[in-house]
Amino acid sequence: MADNSASSGRLKYEAGFAREVYGMENGSYLKLCMQCGVCAVSCATFKIMDYSPRRLFALVRAGRKEEVMKSNTFWMCTTCLMCKARCPRGIPIVDVMHDLKGLALKQGYVNYPQAAFYQAFWQDLAGRGRIFEGGVTARYFLKRGPKDFGKIMAQKDVGLKMLSHGRLPLRPPKAVKGKKELMQMVAKARELEQKGAN
């Protein structure tokens, strides 16, 4: 964890943000957190998280929205399910992280590169119903702009190797035939989910 210190200001407990999070699809599971701390060290990326999941959840309860949303914690989640498997209260922490990522995307907390990756991935997926890795990569670097230019170069070697071993298809897969219907289903589900949440 990067942040070990206690801030100097006085923390004001305020229920608004907690309610917002509890209102999300999996957010209400957070109510069950007993602050045991197993998740804090069960995560594949715990060493680089701003806050451990446990601490993030304590901040949610305390109503500290800015700190929560600006933290890298949920973006670091790799969906490896370890925390979910271990959580003694059965909290699907991974799914909560999905919700927090979703909230961040929706509300514009998108500074981390992962945000761009998620957006790029979804755009590529939505266009075809299947993923084209080349497409995702291109979209991602477009979104990130010049600041990630160095990274493209760094990936070059690996890319060439993959290409030479036939691991990097140059052409996108065929689109799903029922793509239109698929997207109708998704739209309906999003609509129903919105209704259900409110």
Partner: peptide, 12 residues
């Protein structure tokens, strides 16, 4: 004192 967040806290 919020012991886990390590801060002085208040419920108003």
């Amino acid at each position: 004192a919020d012991l886990l967040l390590g801060e002085r806290a208040e419920a108003a």
